[in-house]
Design a protein around this nucleic acid. Structure first.
Lengths: 193, 193
DNA sequence: CGAGAATGGAACAGCGATGTTCTACTGCCG
DNA sequence: CGGCAGTAGAACATCGCTGTTCCATTCTCG
């Protein structure tokens, strides 16, 4: 007993956990009030199995939150926010975030954030800090518009990502949506010519 | 019997209806899953009174949707989308929409839109058409960026409004938030210099 | 094959929201 | 005053989701 703190013996537990986590992300991204039965069905497991991995609904929601945060962290690292011109680095960040797909929609959902009690949310993530650092650098470098404050630029980045993702959902090409997103991002937060 | 199709005799009914509608907009904008008891409390009426005006929850939600759509229509008219340079007109639209306040948040909520069955949503509103017309005109005039298609520009407008409204909620001045919004809007959808 | 892990499904109790009904209370107008 | 519109509140039945327990089945690995 008590062996289930980390990875389990067979690895089957790990796979099931991932399936529930991914299904939960996808389902709750589209409808934050979806029932656990819906999540279970999407994950291809029984409803009791979900409760076996996440005792309460909030446990699942929290786990999804942690999972998404990890994905964002990894994506931020991949984008190497401290390399090269700030605007270029910001575009790399944008591209990496765009690839997160459904996980994006979770972040924008306020009714989800409302049920997030957990500590890791209030305080800034390492990724948040890295992003803020990047934008600050760009404003000092002169490659980002100094008339826009850091928070605003970050929020515009996220909102453009959201719109682009919506467009992708709407049937447009990922490439097309991302192109529009990057182009608009450059124009909006870049230095006015 | 059957006299309640339009405005009631005393006008007290109309006032109560408005109170519920406004409270519903405010409450559901912040938490789409709020109970009708919450709405009733916010409106300062009894829970049964809410049911007297809107038999089912969906009836209230639909009514709020219609109400918001009317507000958007009126705001669009006030902005005179067909007058003057397109970019300037678009800024006027942005200002008018910004004034809608909490009603804005309702529109962006997907879990709310998910429960919207009603016909008026799928088909474009007169305001939608006017806005599309305005953007089209701007792209032909050359005052809006022709590399961005009409839908994208409209969605960017809405998303900037959303970000600005969030900022306003976060304690910033309305004037400040709106300024950033308009400035960014000009840069993103205006012609590249 | 055989033991233990992992799962699915049925069944159940509890809870909160919904929607309905009925009874009083208040205010307004003739 | 007396009647009527509008309302609050209590009480109730119902429903869907939640979380739990139990048992049968399947899977997997030694």
């Amino acid at each position: 007993m008590g062996m289930d703190t980390a990875v389990s013996s067979t690895g089957a537990r790990a796979r099931t956990r991932r399936a529930i986590l991914d299904a939960g992300t996808a389902v709750l991204a589209q409808n934050p009030t979806a029932s656990l039965a819906d999540v279970a069905a999407a994950a291809g497991v029984g409803r009791t199995t979900v409760h076996r991995y996440f005792a309460e609904r909030s446990d699942l929601v929290d786990a999804i939150g942690v999972d998404v945060l990890e994905k964002i962290g990894a994506a931020t690292d991949r984008a190497r926010p401290d390399d090269g011109p700030a605007l270029t680095a910001l575009e790399r960040v944008c591209q990496e975030y765009f690839e997160l797909g459904e996980s994006l929609a979770i972040i924008f959902d306020e009714s989800m954030a409302a049920t997030w009690n957990w500590a890791s949310w209030e305080e800034d993530t390492e990724a948040d800090l890295a992003l803020a650092r990047l934008v600050d650098r760009g404003r000092e470098e002169g490659t980002l518009d100094g008339r826009l404050d850091t928070d605003w630029i970050v929020q515009v980045l996220w909102s453009l990502l959201y719109v682009a993702w919506q467009r992708n959902r709407g049937g447009d090409t990922k490439h097309n949506a991302l192109s529009l997103c990057l182009y608009t991002l450059r124009k909006s937060v870049g230095v006015p010519t």
